[in-house]
Amino acid sequence: MPIVVDIDVMLSRRGMAVGVLAERVGITPANLAVLKNGRARAVRFTTLAALCEALDCQVGDLLRWEPEGVPADQAPADSRSSSTP
């Protein structure tokens, strides 16, 4: 799927554990893992908002689009996440 989920990147930048984020967002660690690993078929805007609030970030820090069939290191520069904390 061309949508890449970078929740683990933001967790690392914030020094936050998955369990702590799940608790702050109000979802189970299992559901957060499904989202974090890119296996979710959908995500509610309220969940995205809660993730952004808990991680002090923008939606674009958590989700990005990459063209299908193009390795991440060869994707156009404007399609890769370039935000800083």
Rank of each mutant, 00 (worst) to 15 (best):
P71L: 10
P85H: 09
E66M: 10
N37M: 04
V5N: 02
G15Y: 06
V70S: 02
G69C: 12
L48V: 12
A33I: 11
A33F: 08
L48P: 07
P67E: 11
V25I: 01
M10L: 14
A72K: 10
A77N: 03
A30V: 13
P71H: 12
T84L: 13
L51A: 05
V18N: 09
R24V: 03
I7D: 03
F45W: 11
R41K: 15
A40G: 02
R14H: 06
F45H: 11
A30C: 05
P85N: 11
I3V: 15
V18W: 06
G60H: 00
V34L: 07
E68S: 15
M16Y: 02
D8N: 13
E68A: 05
L63A: 06
V25S: 02
V34S: 00
A72N: 13
A75H: 07
R64D: 01
L62P: 00
D78W: 06
A54P: 04
I7N: 08
V5H: 05
D56I: 08
A75L: 05
E66G: 08
F45G: 14
G69Q: 12
G38H: 02
C57A: 03
M1S: 15
A22H: 07
L63G: 00
G60F: 00
T28Q: 01
I7V: 09
V25A: 02
E53S: 11
V4W: 05
L62V: 10
S82P: 00
E66H: 09
V59L: 10
V4I: 14
P2C: 14
W65G: 05
T28V: 03
G38C: 10
A17I: 02
R13M: 12
P71M: 04
G19K: 12
T46C: 11
Q58C: 04
E68H: 08
Q74T: 06
D6H: 08
A33K: 14
S81E: 10
M10K: 15
G38Y: 10
R44S: 12
L35Q: 05
P71N: 09
R24I: 04
G60V: 03
Q58T: 05
A30K: 15
S83D: 09
L62F: 04
E66N: 09
E53Q: 09
A54I: 07
C52E: 06
M10I: 09
L55Y: 08
I7E: 06
L32P: 00
L62E: 01
P71G: 06
V5I: 13
V18K: 14
V9E: 13
W65D: 05
P29K: 13
K36S: 15
A33W: 03
K36I: 03
L35W: 03
D6A: 08
L63N: 00
P71S: 07
E53D: 14
S82G: 13
D56M: 04
W65N: 11
L32M: 10
S81M: 03
G69N: 10
L62A: 01
L32E: 04
G19S: 14
V59Y: 12
A30H: 12
D6W: 07
P29T: 05
R24A: 10
A42R: 14
A49I: 06
S79R: 13
V20L: 11
V43H: 00
V9D: 15
M10P: 02
P71I: 04
V18T: 11
S79H: 13
A40E: 03
L35G: 04
G60I: 07
L51Y: 08
A49D: 14
L62D: 01
M16W: 01
A54Q: 07
G15S: 05
E66I: 09
A22V: 01
L11A: 04
D73G: 00
